[in-house]
């Protein structure tokens, strides 16, 4: 596979910065599992989502907060679904079905599976994946609808359920600023899923508003260290 970055040369000298979201996603393949940051319209990598729609790759498993478009101006995973690219959606909020629409139709027809999960459980599974653990025992709730077939074990005075680690082929992230080494900082609620998804993605791509040279970000302020970030793209205006 050729390096999708232009002007090949020392990859390090150029840092991890890619010229466009399309270039950063050039090697995504059919059936990939994709993590997508964002909560209530904040911290969503809109440019990368748009590039993914134009890439057209399908059979994707998308893991994100949910397909709940906040407004027509904000690119949402719902558009990927409407474009027929998503085979499975794993999300705490599922999708907004109040207004019907193409997302509900894909689910009702069986073309897309939907698995809804509590976000605290999903976050912990992703962290376990990113941290090299095989899985974790999380508190089990009485008459828990998520238990289905999972191992329950007692530790101390209560029951815990085994949740397996989760990783993904790609993580599409949004951050405010990056340096060329991939160190990231966020702004307000933009942070949400992005740091834990950065850990769990095999290829983690951050869309940012500003790219610094190394030293441009205070090392004390870094939230996602560059070791978790493989590619950086500048958000288009």
């Amino acid at each position: 596979m050729s390096d999708p970055r232009e002007n090949s040369g020392s990859t390090v000298a150029k840092g991890k910065v890619y010229p466009s979201p399309e270039a950063a996603l050039a090697d995504i393949t059919q059936g990939a599992t994709v993590l997508i940051g964002g909560f209530a319209g904040r911290g969503r990598p809109e440019g990368l989502l748009r590039a993914l729609v134009s890439n057209g790759v399908d059979g994707l498993t998308c893991i994100c907060q949910g397909a709940w478009p906040q407004s027509p101006e904000i690119m949402d995973v719902a558009e990927l679904i409407a474009n027929g690219q998503v085979r499975k959606l794993i999300a705490p909020l599922g999708f907004y079905s109040g207004s019907g629409g193409p997302v509900a139709a894909f689910w009702q027809s069986g073309e897309m599976d939907v698995e809804t999960v509590p976000p605290g459980v999903l976050a912990e599974r992703l962290r376990a994946g990113g941290a090299g653990l095989a899985g974790v025992f999380l508190p089990a709730a009485p008459s828990d609808r998520f238990l289905g077939g999972k191992e329950v074990r007692r530790f101390g005075d209560r029951d815990f359920v085994f949740e397996s680690a989760l990783r993904a082929d790609f993580a599409l992230l949004r951050a405010e600023e990056a340096d060329t080494l991939g160190n990231l900082i966020y702004r307000g609620s933009q942070r949400n899923w992005n740091p834990v998804m950065a850990m769990a993605g095999r290829v983690s791509i951050a869309e940012v508003s500003l790219v610094h040279e190394p030293g441009g970000i205070d090392p004390e302020a870094v939230i996602t260290p560059g070791i978790f970030v493989n590619r950086v793209v500048l958000q288009a205006d």
Binding site: R127, G130, M199, G215, P219, P225, I227
Partner: peptide, 19 residues
């Protein structure tokens, strides 16, 4: 330039997680 500080849980997540 370009350092990042982190805690030990994150530091070993980097190691065990294959990063």
């Amino acid at each position: 330039p370009g350092m990042a500080f982190f805690n030990s849980a994150d530091g070993f997540a980097m190691i065990r997680g294959g990063h």
